[in-house]
């Protein structure tokens, strides 16, 4: 995963963003991503890459900033991704949903996250 894509994931679930929840990379997203690349269907992998690309290059434009997302402050990164979710374009909203869905596959299953939610072990 390149630096621009990492910036997208980090912006979605930042380290120290909301204790006791861990950040995405702190919770081992890299391992999940490797597994996802090896085992997910090609259409899912392609969709996730498209979503990462849109978040990196398109979302800054939605708040009047120059892409990529990695150039922006952490506040603006969040604002840009929020703008994707509120976009009038259905396809832009769907790309953010896909991004969040795949990240949630990892994050929602993480023991520290589940402990924070009191999910039964």
């Amino acid at each position: 995963m390149n630096a621009r894509s990492r910036a997208v994931i980090e912006a979605l679930i930042p380290q120290g963003g909301q204790p006791p929840l861990p950040g995405a990379f702190e919770s081992g997203f890299d391992d999940f991503y490797a597994r996802f690349q090896n085992t997910a269907l090609p259409s899912m992998r392609l969709g996730f890459r498209a979503a990462l690309w849109a978040a990196a290059w398109l979302s800054p434009l939605l708040i009047g900033r120059v892409p990529p997302l990695s150039r922006l402050s952490s506040e603006d990164r969040e604002r840009a991704l929020e703008a994707m979710g509120a976009s009038r374009s259905y396809h832009v909203r769907q790309l953010l949903l896909l991004l969040k869905a795949v990240i949630s596959f990892h994050y929602g299953a993480h023991p520290a996250v589940r402990r924070a939610l009191e999910f039964p072990s």
């Binding site: 909301q18 949903l97 994050y107 996250v113």
Partner: peptide, 24 residues
């Protein structure tokens, strides 16, 4: 399951994470 719930929660970044903490 949390994985499915999270994907539909509003927000990104800290606001998304706050919403996760409200799911209980």
């Amino acid at each position: 399951p949390p994985e499915i719930v999270f994907a539909r929660l509003p927000g990104a970044g800290k606001r998304w994470m706050r919403a996760m903490l409200e799911t209980p």
